[in-house]
Each structure stands twice: as structure tokens, then as C-alpha cells.
Design a protein around this nucleic acid. Sequence first.
DNA 1: GTCTATATACCGATAGAC
DNA 2: GTCTATCGGTATATAGAC
Lengths: 197, 197
Amino acid sequence: MLGTPSRNRQTERREATRREIVDAAWEVARDEGLAQVTLRAVAERVGMRAPSLYSHFASKHAIYDAMFADAWTECGRAGREAEAKHPPQSLRDAMHLYAATFFDFCVVDLARFQLMNQRTIPGFEPSPESYAPAVAVLDELRDRLATFGVTRLEDIDLYTAIVGGLIDAQLANDPGGDRWRRLLDHAIDMYVDSLNH
Amino acid sequence: MLGTPSRNRQTERREATRREIVDAAWEVARDEGLAQVTLRAVAERVGMRAPSLYSHFASKHAIYDAMFADAWTECGRAGREAEAKHPPQSLRDAMHLYAATFFDFCVVDLARFQLMNQRTIPGFEPSPESYAPAVAVLDELRDRLATFGVTRLEDIDLYTAIVGGLIDAQLANDPGGDRWRRLLDHAIDMYVDSLNH
DNA sequence: GTCTATATACCGATAGAC
DNA sequence: GTCTATCGGTATATAGAC
């Protein structure tokens, strides 16, 4: 039987090119807006012509799809990193940590936030494979909070809604500022206090 | 001096046509999405050809602009109506009333919510005249809450962020359902409790 | 004020040479 | 795998006849 190494130079090169394309798409999204991510604009940044992208992605939505998975994978990584650096010792600690990490992660990149959390691109829906990292992040959060005794769906729903609302208000009404960021700790304390009933 | 009546039949007819166009635009937005509001689609619904719309609006953004003012004017009306029907007797009453009214107003029309609260249309920014009704709604809210002793900017910011976060979560994750709507009263109670310190 | 016709500028995607 | 050339469609907006 011929060798079929899971990693050879060809597939590695192919993977690297896909990475380049997705990174270029992120650049366009950040610089010009998420809706301005066009095949022509992406291709130009990687030094290609637009049709060449079809050798690596089946469609434009496939690029958005890879970006979506990218963003949530990165979000999970950021969460685990923060966790390792400041292991939360209490429920309150944990609630503050995850909220602050997610807030700061979202707020530095409006386009990424829109892709992750809003349905701003007409017709785009993430594939199950790309949706998986998003589910994984929420599952991880649920598991972490469960170790501190918070398991009710409603409690977690309210938590995510509060954090999301503050992020949304920050990005919509004071982008680049901290008018709502300053309210985050107080909001989390208020929320944690309300759990102890 | 010749009579220059502020209302004659010509200007009234003109205003009526503008209304028809904006209403048609709302229909398109609701049926096909906010981004799918094209001049062709709008014109078709009013029985015109696309270029004819330019007799009434200077550009497509001008239509969005009228819609934006429309939405916030309607929102203010809904608030005053709810208020008249159930005059709040306490701060807690008021907080519940405005939150529920705004939530239900937003959640019945995703396209309207996106236009009012998100920056989903590339390049569109409301004109000062159209932004005015939005400011008025927030001013009214601030005045009402002030009569109950709530005047700090941070308190109002947190209030709007919480309500907005719940609306956002509802529309994004359970459109048509009530998974986050059910959390609203509890969230408001939690928030009001936190004010009494 | 509405129409037809058109200008201008894009877009995503495909065919086929190399 | 990348290219050129192009298809077929979208869009906003303008010119000028009626």
C-alpha cells in the first residue's frame, strides 16, 4: 500500500494558502467593513486574481464560513489563556473573568463581532462544522460555571445577554471608548449578587 | 400678498406619495431583509419604475433616512401610549413598563431593529433631522426616570444595555420565541434592586 | 411626475488556455 | 494552480422624451 501521510508538503502548502486568503479577508473586513469583503479585494491582498480563489474556496460564503470558525476558535483560545493566567477561585471571579475577556475580545474588532454575533451578511449561515467552535465556547463556559454551582439555563442566558448588551452598546454608541466597559464590573457584581437567593 | 397656505393639495399629495414609498420600503425590509431594500423592489410595490423614486427622494439613503426617523418616532409613540394606559406609580413600575414596551416593539420587526440599533447598512448614517426622534426618545426616558430619582448617566446606560442585550439575544438566538423575553422581568427587578444602595 | 433608455460601477462565478 | 476573458446579474443614479 502506498504511503498516504496525513501531512505532506502539498497539503501543507495548500493549507498555508487558505490561511493567507482568510487572513487577507480579515484585513479587508477590518479596513473596509465586513460587507466590503469581495473576492476581488481579497485576491488583491494575497497577490492573486479573483477567480484563483476558487481553487481554494468553493464560494465567497465558504470564506466567510472559515472566518466564522476562525473567530470562535480564537475566542475560545482567548478564554482558556485568560483562565490559565488568572485561575478563578470563586464564582464571582469566574464571572468577571469570562465577561471581561469576552468583552475585550469583541470590542477590538467590530467586523469580527458582527460576523460572530450578528446576522449582518445576507444569505450567510455558518455550516455545522464552522458552528461547532461557537458551540464549544458556550459549552466550555457552561462547564466552568457548573463547577461553581451555576447550572440553570436561565442564569447563563441572562449572563450572556448582559455581557452582550454592554458590548453592543459600546460598539454602537462609543466605539473606541469605554463608556460601557466601565460598567461591566458593576453589572457582573449585580448579577452575581442576584444569584444568591 | 398671495396666500401661501402651509397645506395645499399638491404638497399633501406629495407627502402621501412619500409615505407610500416609505411604507413599501418597510414591506420589502420585513419580507426580504433590510439589505434587500432596492429601488427596484420598492418601486415595484408602489407601481412605479425605479428612477421615478428620485422625484421624491434624492437617493436610496434618503429612504433609509426616512425609515430611521419613522421607526424612532413610532417607538416614542408606543412608549407614550403604554404610559397612558398603565401610568407607572413607582420606579420599579416604570422600569418594567419601558423595558417591556421597548422589547416588544423591537422584537416584532427584525429589520426595523437593525435599522434603529445596529449599523448594518454600509455607508448609511442617519441625518441630524432623522436622528432627532431617536434622541427625543432617550430624552423622554431620561426625564421619566428622573421623576423617580434616577438621574445618573451610568444607571441609565446600564439599563438600556441590559434591555438591549436581551432583545439582541432574543432576535439572534430564538427569533419568534420568548426564551429571553421570559427573563426580562427578573432582569429588571435585579437591576432596580441594585439601585437601592 | 413618470416613463424609457442608459451610464457607470460593481458583484460572484465559470470556461478554458497555459 | 493561476491566469485572461467573460458571462450574467446586481445595484444606484442620470438624461431626456412625454
